[in-house]
């Protein structure tokens, strides 16, 4: 854990994961970036619009027996909507994304784009296109392309593996399977990344410290 003062406003900024280079200051929304000899300010991030997501920074949970904390979020928008991607830091130091869209959750780990890739994935990695229904075998699981979106970063908060400036454009391709396993491919024009995991329900994550919302009862599985 690394604690520094925000170069912009002087507030305390805590980096919980040694692997993550960016933390958005909770007070002035300055992206504080780690460099060799300390930190530097990398611009002010946009304000997150109001939403009723049940997750917040500080929510804790468990996945496959491992405890995690929610430490960051990126909100993406596209022509017909928006979704959240929450960054989870596991007790063993790994991180993962909890995608939240249309009231459904996907828990995804990054998978290096190396070795032999499914044809669709390697075409996408080279900047090519995909169509709905395209089949791809990743780690022995049969996937189908379910969704293709041109997304724009709306805002971000907390600790992140990258600076996520508003207006950052990314092509996002979602894969589904017949087992509930899912995958997501993202390409921002220069770099491509692949994430694999599965659909989860909030209850499966045994969440604690969910966000309380007026008029709604926090479910018993999170109490």
């Amino acid at each position: 854990m690394l604690s520094v003062n925000c170069p912009n406003c002087g507030a305390e900024v805590v980096f919980r994961s040694p692997a993550l280079p960016v933390k958005v200051c909770d007070y002035c929304r300055t992206a504080v970036t780690r460099i060799d000899d300390g930190v530097r300010a990398a611009g002010e991030m946009a304000v997150l619009p109001f939403d009723v997501s049940p997750i917040r920074i500080g929510t804790r949970g468990r996945f496959d027996g491992q405890g995690f904390d929610v430490i960051g979020r990126v909100r993406w928008g596209w022509s017909d909507g928006a979704w959240n991607e929450w960054l989870l830091l596991f007790a063993d130091g790994r991180d993962a994304w909890l995608g939240e869209a249309m009231g459904q959750f996907m828990l995804l780990f990054e998978k290096p784009l190396e070795g032999s890739l499914a044809r669709v994935v390697s075409r996408l990695a080279k900047g090519g296109d995909a169509t709905i229904g395209d089949k791809a075998m990743i780690d022995g699981i049969d996937y189908q392309v379910a969704d293709i979106k041109d997304a724009v970063c709306i805002a971000c908060e907390g600790e992140l593996p990258f600076t996520a400036p508003a207006g950052w454009k990314v092509k996002s391709v979602d894969f589904r399977s017949n087992t509930g396993a899912c995958a997501s491919f993202q390409h921002d024009g220069t770099e491509a990344s692949l994430y694999t995991g599965r659909y989860v329900t909030l209850a499966e994550l045994h969440p604690q410290d969910l966000r309380a919302l007026d008029g709604w009862t926090i479910p018993s599985f999170a109490a």
């Binding site: 009723v52 997501s53 049940p54 249309m102 009231g103 909030l202 969910l210 709604w216 479910p219």
Partner: peptide
């Protein structure tokens, strides 16, 4: 139908 903790 909507419930923020259970989706749609």
């Amino acid at each position: 139908l909507f419930n923020p903790y259970h989706g749609y």
